[in-house]
Design a protein around this nucleic acid. Sequence first.
DNA 1: CTACGGGTTAGAGTGCACTCTAAGTCAAGG
DNA 2: CCTTGACTTAGAGTGCACTCTAACCCGTAG
Lengths: 130, 130
Amino acid sequence: MKIGELVKRSGLSAHTIRYYERIGLLPPADRDRSGQRDYDVSILTWIEFLNRLKTTGMPIRDMLLYAALRARGTETEAERKALLEEHRERVRAHVAELQDCLLVLDTKIAGYAGVEERIKIHDARQTKRR
Amino acid sequence: MKIGELVKRSGLSAHTIRYYERIGLLPPADRDRSGQRDYDVSILTWIEFLNRLKTTGMPIRDMLLYAALRARGTETEAERKALLEEHRERVRAHVAELQDCLLVLDTKIAGYAGVEERIKIHDARQTKRR
DNA sequence: CTACGGGTTAGAGTGCACTCTAAGTCAAGG
DNA sequence: CCTTGACTTAGAGTGCACTCTAACCCGTAG
């Protein structure tokens, strides 16, 4: 798979793919005889996982750490697990915080709805009096 | 309340408070006779709400929009409500996405735990054979 | 043969949200 | 009077994660 196809299948831009490779988030791609990047489909699984980490707010430097451990092989699995467990805790905490904020938003929105109600009631009264 | 106290009570830095005022997120502060900012406690409620918006990922330009509507008074309440409702939807969607990612993390972590299990079993067998 | 559509690189530029610097003012305490 | 520390401003700098530019190369279809 050339970079153009990977762009389509991964959702990343070619710029971003090369950038990720440059900083070490993606392994150095194999090249065809003319020097162009030639990807194995398995890269898609990795990119998808990176996307999960990114969505959950993991900074690139932590992803790099994970990628480096992964590159070092099986011996680093305990460390990788610990890294993910810590991250999971942060994500859980963040979700809890967001849910808290959602309650505040609900209250605020309900307050505005209340205002609308009061306007309607007020208008109704005005109408009656006319 | 001077800026120093607001720093302590709001958690924002003085730099950030002045920056927020400059861009219009905070209303222009009253000044004492020597020109220093003098805040009313009510500003804390507003800052707290801004923090909620920020935590939930609202970009500053949207907060500015909300702040501008607020400054225009009661007539903009329907618009503000709509803005918050849209935002709430985005936050809900984001929370759902995060929960999805959490499941992926759980699976991944369980996979590593599985590896540890297999190592233990393998070691146990080795011990038996010895 | 040549145009075209892809690819290549190093490095510059972007947008966001701060964060800090430099140089100055001001009021109270010793 | 002088120091201290909190405040003031305009504007520069930071860190992140891309995103794009310029100038180039390569293989194939017409």
